[in-house]
Design a protein around this nucleic acid. Sequence first.
DNA 1: CGGAGGTTTGACTGCGCTCAACTGAGGTGG
DNA 2: CCACCTCAGTTGAGCGCAGTCAAACCTCCG
Lengths: 242, 242
Amino acid sequence: MTTQCRYCPLQRKDAFIPMSKEELSFMEKFKSGELTVEPGTPILLEGSNAPQLYTALTGMGIRDKTLENGNRQVISFVFPGDFIGLQAGIMGEMGHSVEARTHMRLCVFNRSEFWNFFKSHPERAFDITWLAAIEEHFMGEVLATIGQRTAIQAIAWAMVKIFERGQSLGMVTHNQMPLPYSQRDLADALGLSVVHTNKTLGALKERQLLSWSDRVLQINNLAALAKVGMTSLEGRQKRPLL
Amino acid sequence: MTTQCRYCPLQRKDAFIPMSKEELSFMEKFKSGELTVEPGTPILLEGSNAPQLYTALTGMGIRDKTLENGNRQVISFVFPGDFIGLQAGIMGEMGHSVEARTHMRLCVFNRSEFWNFFKSHPERAFDITWLAAIEEHFMGEVLATIGQRTAIQAIAWAMVKIFERGQSLGMVTHNQMPLPYSQRDLADALGLSVVHTNKTLGALKERQLLSWSDRVLQINNLAALAKVGMTSLEGRQKRPLL
DNA sequence: CGGAGGTTTGACTGCGCTCAACTGAGGTGG
DNA sequence: CCACCTCAGTTGAGCGCAGTCAAACCTCCG
C-alpha cells in the first residue's frame, strides 16, 4: 500500500506547480510503488537500460559518471522533486549513475507506461520536456562554471545554487540547510582536487561567507557569496513535478 | 514559397529516423518558413524569450554564453539537424545564445503552436523529449571532459566527437570534413586558453593524429585519437529530426 | 596600404595538482 | 574496553600543466 499522490509531501512545497485533481489521479495510476534506499545505494547505473523511472520524494543523492582512468565527474546533486532516469526512459541508456547519499524515498514509475504517458496526457508530456529543458539550462551554467570560473568562484557559485535550491524546498532554517555530501563529491562536481577544494572552502569560511561542516551548510552572506561566484540571485521559479 | 519537408535535405541522411508521410505533412503545417543567415549572425540571444524555434537545415553554428567578467563558454557546436530554441520554447528563456558560423539555412517553427504540437502529435512530442535527452546525455560527457580530462585528452575527445558527428551526416570525404570554427571557439568550448589550445593541436598534428587548418579537419587515425581522448567509438545511432 | 581577426611561437608565471603526513570520528572485533 | 581500521577532513611542501603577456606573421578586405 503506497501513499497516494494527493498526500505526496512534495505537493505542498511551493517550489512546484501544483497538480490538478485529474492529474493527481492519473499519476497514481502511473505510479507503480515506492522504494526506499540507504546511503551509498546505487539507484541507476551508467550505461544501463533501466526499466524504471523515479521521482525523488525525500533525501538526497548524486549523479556521476566514471572515466576509464578512474576519474569521476559528478553531474549534479539530486534533491527532492528531481526526476531520475529520463535518459534510460527515452533513449534506453543512462549517461550517468545515480546513487543515494542519505536515506531516500523514491516514487517508482514503470518505463513500459512511459509512452502511454505521452499519448494520453500531453500536458504531463510537456512537463517532462520542461524538466529536461530546465536540466539542460542548468548544465549550461555548470559548464560555464567548470570551464571559466576559478576555484573560489566555482565553489561560491555552487553554494549559492545549492542554497537557493534548498530555500525553494523549505530546507533552510536560520540560514542553515542539510548538505550531506563529502568534499570529494563537491570537488568531483567542479573538476577540482579534494585538497584544493578543502583549502578554498577554508578561504570562504575565513571570509565569513559560509561554513560547511557536519553535513550542515550555513550561509552567512548570500549576496556577497553570489558576487564572488559571479552570479545573480534568481527569484523562485516553480517547476513541474512528476 | 518554402521547400516542403518531403524534399528536406536532411530527410535523406541516415543519421535521422525517417518520418512517416503523415508526420511529414504535419510538420509542413507546423513549419512557418525558412531563414537564411550569414556567418556571425546571432540567431537566438541568451536570456531572450524568442517566439520562434528552428531546426538547422544546412550550415554550422555555435551555442555560447558569456559571464559577467567577459569570459565565454561555448556550450556546443551546432550541426545540421540540430533543434534550436527548446529552452525558449518551453521555459521562456534561453540559457545561451546561438550564432551562425557559416551561411545557414534554418527551418522556422512558431512557438505559439508548440503546445498544439504536444497535444495533437504525441509521437512528435516524444521526439522532442528524445532530443532533449540526447542533449543532456551529451552535456554530461562534456562536463566530464572539461572537469576531468587534460588538455590533450579533451581536444582529442572533442575531435573524435565532431568527426563522428560529421560522419553520420555524410560530411566526411577522404577523412576530411569542414570545420568552420576558430581555435578560440574550441578553446572556449573546452575551458582552455587559445594559446594552449593552439599548442596542443600542434602536438596532435605532430603525432600524426589529425590536422586542422583552413577550416578543414583531417583525421589520420581515429582509433588512436579516441584512445588519447579516453573515449570509445560508438556505432551510428539514429536520432529523431524535427 | 592599413587595419582587423586568426594563428603561431617564446618566455614567464601561477593556480591548482600531487604527494605525504596527521587528526578525529565511527565502527568492529578481540 | 581498548586496539585497530577506515574514511573524511586538514595542512604543508613542491611541482607542473596551463594561463598570461607579448610579439610576430598571415590572410582577407576595405
